[in-house]
């Protein structure tokens, strides 16, 4: 489970002064559910997810991820999380198998378990053909599979995806979307950020609309449709963000 409690992140910028990237974000995501964090570029999605993955430390507030506090027990949190984004690249000079093995070992897996997990994941993702090929020689689709294998190797109960389909072609994006759905079906807690409305409509059990660092609306799609009187998610998004957007512009 993920439970964000008033997460805040502020950065200091020499030119712009204090930047409030995330401001009091709270939500809950349950096992076997997908929570979609929807927002425009710069809305605070990545910062929120990085805080949940303990890559960044919150300035204020906290979150409980897989039963561990992100501020108090960040290493325990990371051991129970699989984090995937387009920014999480692969080591170019390691082979696909070495890459996954490395992360398995860092997650504390013993050699026997690691071998079993790798055989299982590589078989499931149809990766045996490029097991020993260096990551810099792989196609984009193959690289995504290695990244998926890397996040799954320690079988984490919580999966965090930060715009995982950004810049990918249709077929590779489909692989990712299917993988996210499979994670939910296996009972994992899944949170992912995107600005692609169709992905949210297809996948999410709960949606959070984030703008200017604040969570402005939250709930299942049907509830948001009823609340804002719109069927199309894009229209709902504009309605939620619109007044705030104007206020920001002004």
């Amino acid at each position: 489970m993920i439970e964000a409690r008033g997460l805040c992140k502020r950065f200091q910028d020499k030119k712009r002064g204090e930047i409030r990237a995330v401001e009091g974000v709270s939500f809950r995501c349950l096992p076997g559910q997908i929570y979609g964090l929807l927002g425009a570029n710069g809305a605070g999605k990545t910062t929120t997810l990085r805080m949940l993955a303990t890559i960044l430390e919150p300035t204020d507030g906290t979150a409980i991820v897989a039963g561990y506090d992100i501020v108090e027990q960040p290493e325990k949190v990371r051991a129970n999380v699989g984090f995937l984004s387009t920014a999480t690249a692969l080591y170019p000079r390691l082979t696909a198998q070495e890459m996954v093995e490395y992360f398995g070992r860092l997650n504390g897996l013993d050699e026997a378990t690691l071998k079993r997990r790798i055989d299982e994941i590589f078989g499931r993702l149809d990766m045996d053909g490029f097991r020993d090929r260096r990551c810099d020689k792989l196609s984009t689709g193959m690289k995504q599979k290695v990244s998926i294998a890397r996040t799954l190797v320690h079988d984490p109960p919580v999966m965090i995806f930060d715009e995982p389909t950004l810049g990918l072609d249709v077929m590779t994006a489909r692989t990712i979307v299917e993988f996210i759905r499979e994670c939910r079906n296996r009972g994992k807690t899944v949170i992912f950020s995107t600005h692609v409305m169709s992905e949210v409509e297809k996948l999410c059990d709960n949606i959070g609309i984030i703008h200017d660092g604040k969570l402005l609306a939250e709930g299942p799609l049907r509830e948001l449709r009823a609340k804002y009187g719109e069927q199309d998610l894009e229209e709902i998004f504009v309605k939620v963000v619109g007044p705030h957007h104007v206020a920001v512009e002004a």
Partner: peptide, 14 residues
Amino acid sequence: ERGTMETILSSPLA
């Protein structure tokens, strides 16, 4: 530059 820093920081490694 290669984007692997974020990958390693997301692991439980201290």
